[in-house]
């Protein structure tokens, strides 16, 4: 039996892992003072945003690329859009629809606030994008927004826009500053806010797309 092998092995592994964690020597190099020292020239006042959009902006650039790739893979494997009847708006509960209509503008305001707050306190593009995506899912579930079938031209630009904007800012800085994504300290704040706005919109659309492209796929086994 597989179970008889896996469970003792898992117990042994977790024991060793916890012993190793408790015993681990302190790191030889501490990044925290470096983050704090350079915060003044990073363009934002919140250390997590500074790490995401300035010190390690390369990771964030690749991350939005990975998300875009995942969405394309989902579009490739999810069912072909055949009938429109499945995705037409279902006649939903009027109470739900009204609550959705009330919640929508509030959530947009929350997303914009989170985006703006990210420069100085917890918040930022990721959280704002997640709120936008949650808004799209909510509108879909209350029957106000139809599931997406095939992305049109505008939606395609919206999905890829954040990545393209990020990449073009990076390429511009490569030409001007001589290094990919090294912001000049005087303009770092504006550039980060520009990139974050693009990221918020694209992240919201991509994360919403993960749900809305999947949920139109209602067809039975063929």
């Amino acid at each position: 039996m597989k179970r008889l092998v896996v469970i003792p092995a898992a117990l042994f592994f977790v024991l060793v892992l916890i012993l190793a964690l408790v015993d681990l020597a302190p790191p030889a190099f501490d990044l925290r003072p470096l983050v704090a020292e350079n915060l003044a020239s990073s363009g934002v006042a919140h250390p997590v945003t500074a790490v995401l959009l300035n010190y390690r902006a390369y990771d964030t650039l690749l991350e939005i690329g990975v998300l875009l790739l995942a969405l394309m893979a989902i579009l490739a494997v999810s069912g072909s859009p055949r009938t429109t009847s499945n995705t037409s708006l279902s006649a939903s509960d009027p109470l739900l629809a009204m609550l959705g209509r009330i919640a929508a503008p509030v959530m947009v305001v929350v997303a914009v606030y989170l985006l703006w707050a990210g420069t100085s306190r917890p918040g930022g593009a990721f959280q704002a994008g997640a709120v936008l995506a949650a808004l799209a899912v909510l509108l879909h579930l209350t029957g106000l927004l139809a599931g997406w079938q095939q992305p049109g031209v505008r939606l395609r630009w919206g999905l890829a826009g954040g990545f393209l904007l990020f990449l073009s800012v990076g390429a511009l800085l490569l030409l001007v500053e001589g290094e990919l994504l090294r912001y000049p300290p005087a303009h770092a704040g504006v550039l980060i806010l520009l990139i974050e706005s693009g990221l918020t919109l694209s992240l919201g659309l991509i994360l919403a797309g993960l749900f809305l492209f999947l949920s139109h796929d209602q067809g039975g086994p063929r």
């Binding site: 997590v48 989170l114 917890p122 918040g123 930022g124 990721f126 959280q127 997640a130 709120v131 995506a133 949650a134 899912v137 579930l141 994360l207 993960l210 749900f211 999947l214 949920s215």
Partner: peptide, 22 residues
């Protein structure tokens, strides 16, 4: 708090909605 915000919206909300929808 940054991760908490993202986890509330994504980990609990979006992933849950995706799984329940599937």
């Amino acid at each position: 708090p940054d991760i908490a915000l993202a986890e509330a919206a994504i980990g609990a909300g979006l992933t849950g909605a995706l799984l329940l929808d599937a």
